[in-house]
């Protein structure tokens, strides 16, 4: 078997893949805080800012009284130059945004937020400004060395059809085990969902620069 034949499928794969992806509509900005002494160590903390959340379909969904759920995950990685990076742990938190029609106000619930975990806002502009505010995440690397954070945000609407899946998520049981038994079904389902109703969620990711914990 000649090598050029083997390169053909690789070329096809690369050609198919070489299509630039446009920027995601929801924008995630992740920066690092100043050095801070915590438990005898100098660390930097991730600062997360979510922009353009209400500009498109998510804003439309909220106006239609569908609550929005923002699920954040921060993976803490230890960088080992020239070798495999070491995954340390993941911290998670979430935000739920609701429109309360009778009071004509918006409620933002952030259960892990210090101070005011639930905030009511009277106007769309105030809501947009509040959601765009910087969040400082108390995510602490476990040791010393060079680290970075990988931040993932998934935006979904909370519909009743999604409830069973979310029930499991809330209970910490993962996804529907019946679906897990057949991931091929899931792939086809995603395809059909795209045909019938478009994507049900949006995911964006960002990584911080590396920093040293001393």
């Amino acid at each position: 078997m000649s090598r050029p034949r083997f390169l053909l499928p690789l070329g096809i794969v690369v050609a198919l893949a070489a299509h630039p992806v446009a920027a995601q509509r929801v924008e995630l900005q992740v920066t690092l805080s100043n050095d801070t002494l915590v438990d005898g160590r100098l660390i930097r903390l991730p600062q997360v800012r979510t922009l353009n959340l209400l500009a498109g379909r998510w804003g439309q969904a909220l106006r239609n009284s569908l609550p929005l759920r923002l699920s954040y995950q921060i993976e803490i990685w230890r960088s080992r130059d020239g070798w495999i990076d070491q995954y340390e742990k993941t911290v998670e938190w979430g935000i739920v945004v609701r429109h309360e029609a009778l009071f004509d106000q918006y409620t933002v619930t952030t259960p892990r937020a210090r101070g005011a975990p639930e905030v009511s806002l009277a106007t769309w502009e105030a809501l947009d400004r509040y959601l765009s505010r910087e969040r400082l995440i108390l995510a602490r690397p476990g040791g010393r060395g060079t680290y970075y954070f990988h931040v993932r945000l998934e935006v979904t609407t909370l519909s009743e059809d999604d409830l069973e899946e979310l029930e499991r998520f809330v209970r910490g049981e993962g996804t529907d085990p019946d679906r897990d038994r057949n991931p091929a079904n899931r792939s086809v389902l995603q395809f059909l969902m795209r045909m019938t109703g478009g994507l049900q969620s949006e995911r964006v990711e960002q990584r911080t620069e590396k920093f040293v914990v001393r």
Binding site: R69, V96, P111, R112, R114, P117, R129, R133, E134, L136
Partner: peptide, 26 residues
């Protein structure tokens, strides 16, 4: 920090306990 010139950041503590009233539950 530099963000102090704007609105202060909201502090998220992923290890903090959640009040029952705020639990996002079904």
């Amino acid at each position: 920090g530099p963000a102090a010139a704007q609105e202060p950041p909201i502090v998220i503590d992923p290890d903090a306990p959640i009040a029952d009233s705020l639990r996002l539950s079904a």
